[in-house]
Design a binder for these strands. Structure first.
Lengths: 152, 152
DNA sequence: TGAACTGCGACAAAAATAGTCCTATACTGA
DNA sequence: TCAGTATAGGACTATTTTTGTCGCAGTTCA
């Protein structure tokens, strides 16, 4: 639950790849799909979408492909996920103005909306560049006690 | 995307309801389902699950129902969601020890695992009691620096 | 021109969610 | 002790979302 879709995963992987290969003028969807072993056509769609929202620049034809349209440092995971998975989040019924259908209830939503924002904040605070840096670099995300509850 | 399942929603709503009615010794699944207009049988299952993990106490028979097994203040949204939706999170392939299938790639996962922890932290920081308090009360979520992933 | 690309719409397949049905068991009170 | 109200839970079906495929059109370049 609370899982990223694979498309979003793929998108992040691809952007990370691009961030790690700034030398290549442009990389094709197939190249990336091959290196990661993911369905080329699916990745293609994801990249097309990212191009559409302006995170990537594409050019067709031989030796064509994609490149980041901005510095990796300025692209947040949030933007990528949002572009791919849509206007996100948490509660099932926070769709704009329309409140929770007939249910006058759903008071749960307000508190969760705040949680929602926190999560968005987390996602906004991490950039593609952050993800691309050497794994040895200590992550600077909150170091709180994270105790994963063991499942039953 | 990154959406809670309805079951989790229902569970949170139910716990909130229980937190708001400490006077009632025990509330039936049907009562809660009726007030929120959600499928009774489905809610029943959710409550059964929450009982199983120890968040609720149940008793059958007439005037039976459920009650919180601990103070609302000590029950986090994380626990509830975890109980219902399972051992959570973000990336599709963070299933214990087994790494990302054949893909040697998936380097995306590590940075995201950190984001993951941040989100878990957010969820752990909000309690059922927090959700049940008057809407006007400022939520205490998001105030802390939750994540600092600064690269800049 | 043709090979290697992107762009896109329409599907199809698979998986996860949501919800229902049915039966068993437990407790209560008259 | 029996009827009514509840929980417990397995098996199923339905619905929705996600994932992946196909085919074709447009682009670029050698």
């Amino acid at each position: 639950m609370l899982r990223l879709t694979k498309k979003a995963d793929y998108g992040l992987m691809a952007l990370k790849y691009l961030a790690e290969h700034p030398d290549s003028v442009s990389v094709s969807a197939k190249d990336i799909a091959d290196t990661y072993g993911i369905p080329p056509q699916l990745l293609a769609k994801v990249l097309q979408r990212l191009t559409k929202v302006g995170l990537l620049r594409s050019h067709a034809g031989m030796n064509g492909g994609y490149e980041l349209s901005r510095a990796a440092r300025t692209i947040s995971a949030f933007e990528v996920i949002h572009a791919i998975d849509g206007p996100l989040f948490i509660t099932s019924c926070t769709k704009g103005s329309k409140s929770c259908e007939l249910e006058p209830s759903c008071t749960i939503k307000e508190p969760l909306a705040r949680v929602n924002e926190s999560i968005a904040g987390v996602l906004k605070s991490i950039s593609i560049h952050d993800m691309a840096e050497d794994e040895s670099t200590p992550g600077r995300v909150a170091e709180q006690p994270l105790v994963m509850l063991t499942s039953s």
